[in-house]
């Protein structure tokens, strides 16, 4: 599936959000048809399991349809919001599975699949965030990937990368901060 360029206007998304809030069944269809590939793709990338990805996809769309007021158009994009919902549910699943494996004293499953650099390289090269990712130091990119796509806590990130926990936190913060500043340049003066 060829990657899409996303225009960052807000009005069209606000109209969709209002149609969802009004219970317009065609808005639910529009929402699914536009974002299912993204939500499912993100869930699949994170979980590496098709059935689990399908379950998360269903949960995400049902949750937004049942409580459309969760999304506030002025605060971010619908795509970013759905990404957050998807990620949170996927990480919850990963951690429940890891906890179950620990209880059963089983070794953690190997997570096959492409690493972030390979994924970014395959993705469409346009987009400010993708450009920002390409300029991040490898140490920050790797930390973000472990936390976001593997559901690791910062302590687990530190263990995998063999760095102090404080360093793991800093790398995560620096990478995420850079992305936030790409989205909202005025933030660069306001972190302190």
């Amino acid at each position: 599936m060829e990657q899409r360029r996303i225009h960052q206007g807000k009005w069209a998304e606000r109209v969709l959000a209002e149609r969802l809030a009004g219970g317009d069944r065609s808005a639910l269809v529009d929402l699914y048809d536009r974002y299912a590939g993204f939500v499912y793709g993100l869930a699949l990338r994170t979980l590496a399991n098709r059935q689990a990805a399908e379950d998360v996809t269903q949960e995400v769309f049902c949750a937004l349809w049942e409580n459309p007021g969760q999304f506030e158009p002025g605060r971010g994009t619908l795509r970013g919001f759905l990404g957050t919902m998807t990620h949170r549910r996927a990480v919850d699943l990963i951690r429940r599975e890891e906890a179950r494996r620990r209880r059963e004293s089983r070794a953690p499953a190997d997570r096959d699949g492409p690493d972030l650099a390979e994924t970014v390289a395959r993705s469409d090269a346009t987009g400010r965030v993708r450009d920002a990712l390409a300029t991040l130091p490898e140490a920050q990119r790797r930390a973000l990937e472990l936390a976001y796509f593997h559901g690791h806590t910062y302590r687990q990130v530190a263990t995998v990368l063999q760095i102090p926990e404080g360093t793991a936190k800093s790398r995560l913060r620096l990478g995420l901060q850079r992305i936030a500043e790409i989205l909202r340049p005025e933030l660069s003066e306001k972190w302190a």
Partner: peptide
């Protein structure tokens, strides 16, 4: 974080 996920995961 949401935009990071959106940018990094292929559809």
């Amino acid at each position: 974080a949401g935009e990071y996920g959106a940018a990094a995961a292929p559809e």
